[in-house]
Design a protein around this nucleic acid. Structure first.
Length: 139
DNA sequence: GCCAACGTTGGC
DNA sequence: GCCAACGTTGGC
């Protein structure tokens, strides 16, 4: 299984919006960045990801599961853009903030820290376990 | 609200 | 194919 991180502005699409979709989930559409798209094409059903709120909150607020592999993004006719479907899994008991992540030396190499603008990014298994622990949820 | 970093676009 | 200009993102 692989691990990922999905970033969203809560004012556009929040964790609560994602939870409201239930097990049927929702497309992670609107991505117009090749790197982010390429990562989505590498995802498999059953992979896990963190749901991260950017802007004011800047924290991992829950985990999600990939429920459909990459397919054309329904919000555009441009064939270049694909997206996966995800569903909310577990809310973080304690949101893990960007400050928390930066303060932990085990997380210093995270893409979130190194390239803050990439909206879909890979997470290593070690990073996954550390952040789950900090969030108070089972990995 | 500002600004730095980065990615994309388009002219040459 | 290069590079300057521009737009967008996201942290501060």
């Amino acid at each position: 299984m692989k691990y990922w991180l999905f970033k969203s502005e809560p004012s556009t699409w929040s964790w609560d919006d994602q939870v409201a979709k239930g097990d049927s989930g929702e497309e992670w559409d609107g991505v117009r960045n090749y790197q982010a798209r390429n990562f989505m094409r590498e995802m498999s059903v059953g992979d896990r990801g963190f749901f991260y709120h950017s802007q004011k909150e800047k924290a991992v607020v829950g985990t999600v599961e990939i429920i459909a592999e990459a397919h054309p993004d329904s919000t555009t006719d441009d064939a270049r853009w694909d997206c996966v479907d995800i569903k909310a899994l577990t809310p973080a008991k304690t949101p893990v903030t960007l400050d928390d992540i930066k303060a932990d030396e085990r997380l210093g190499e995270m893409v979130l820290v190194k390239n803050s603008r990439l909206s879909v990014q890979p997470v290593t298994e070690a990073e996954w376990q550390v952040i789950c622990e900090m969030a108070g949820i089972a990995p």
